[in-house]
Amino acid sequence: MSAKAIAREKIPDAVLLLKTKYRVIAPVPKGKTFVFKKIDDPQEIVLDYNTTILPLKKFFLPPREVLVEYNLKKQEYREPEIKSEPTVFFGIHNYELQGILRLDYAFGTGVKDETYLKKRKNNIFIGVTYTPDDFHFAKSVGIPTDLKEGFDIFLTKYNSHYRVEALTDKGKSIVSQWSEFLEECSYDSDPVVHFKNKLKQSVAGIREVFHGAYNHPVWKETSKKCYSCGTCNLVCPTCYCFDVSDEVVLGTNRGSRSRRWDSCQILGFTEVAGGEAFREKRYDRVRHRMSRKFAYIMDDRDRPFCVGCGRCIRQCTANISITDVMNALL
């Protein structure tokens, strides 16, 4: 078959062209790892990356954001203006975008969260394939590396070039502007990808696994290692729980209400007025996280709220693995 392709060395030029019209967000190195960052110099971009410290959610649900500002004396309030600058998210792995699609479901179903949804306007996603490391297990949760749902353009890596597929009108219009960087190429089939980390069972029917698993010993065993530092939630592409707090500026009538990322692993998260905690025991909290990912919440296509990025395993100081825990149940 023949298709369009872009040579690896032409990528910075292609991004430079995008930058004339869009804010470009892409992976760049940070020490031994990577982060998503607004691109100033396209040479910084690294497309061969395993994953970033934080998922893309930081652009749509920042670690802390002001929801409303008010004046107590004047009894006035106003919501901060949210800019939705046209943005290209470049070099995105498919599980990453799947995470955003799960957040869209969470924030867009029922009561709509405009603070989040406004930022989801004017987004263009350009995907790229990846080589799974020891932690990725996306295929096990229904996200094989060739899933292109949600992308405007998708780049599939071959040795020294990327196959370029335009999947939407927006994507096609960008690819047409890239013509000078593209070449004709032929390919036989998609590269073969192996996942080292996997679940014993596919996600179909995984919800049922939790029936009768409430008292499984794995919860207590896992909780012995857990510090409840919350890292697993904070770095998760589909964790969106937040805490809301008010703050009045000392000596004034001015105040603001803001939200910040919270974590169901932290004791305070489960505390209610009067000091009662619903999940006081650490193992209650460990179980809650897994249950919520694979049983309590599924989107309208019955897909779990885990995209297999492996961040919670990679970044857990105590070496707790969501796949080990799940495999103990399966």
């Binding site: 020490g31 530092c229 919350g230 890292t231 910040r260 990322w261 974590s263 305070g268």
Partner: peptide
């Protein structure tokens, strides 16, 4: 909660 929460929010290694 622990310092990790604030450290992760800053995306430190």
């Amino acid at each position: 909660y622990s310092v990790c929460v604030e450290c992760k929010a800053k995306e430190n290694e």
